[in-house]
């Protein structure tokens, strides 16, 4: 199966986002590199708004991800509640 990934800058805003992604995607692996974290996952990966909100204690708009996003792969499907990355194979 193909891997998807999302890479985020390492900073205070992304700490909880990364934590939420790893909790929601037990199959995902975080790779820490200088100033960035790359999260790889087989098949698909989901970023869930509610999980992030639980950790940061405020409302979160998934589009805020754009501020600290470095890169990603896979088809993107975004709704108000979830952003999903996946390959069709």
């Amino acid at each position: 199966m193909s891997k998807v990934f999302i890479a985020l800058q390492t900073n205070d805003d992304t700490r909880s986002i990364i934590q939420a992604i790893l909790a929601d995607n037990p199959h995902a692996i975080a790779n820490e590199q200088p100033a960035m974290v790359k999260i790889d996952a087989e098949g698909s990966l989901v970023v869930r708004r509610s999980s992030i909100e639980d950790l940061i204690g405020r409302d979160f708009d998934l589009q805020e991800l754009h501020i600290n996003l470095i890169s990603l792969t896979g088809h993107v499907d975004e709704t108000d509640d979830e952003l999903t990355l996946s390959w069709n194979t």
Binding site: Q9, A35, N68, I70
Partner: peptide
């Protein structure tokens, strides 16, 4: 590093557009 990552933060959108 800062201008690079700031540019790259737009890149995820560009890549999605390309696909």
């Amino acid at each position: 590093m800062t201008f690079g990552f700031s540019a790259q933060s737009d890149e995820a959108r560009h890549m999605t557009l390309g696909l």
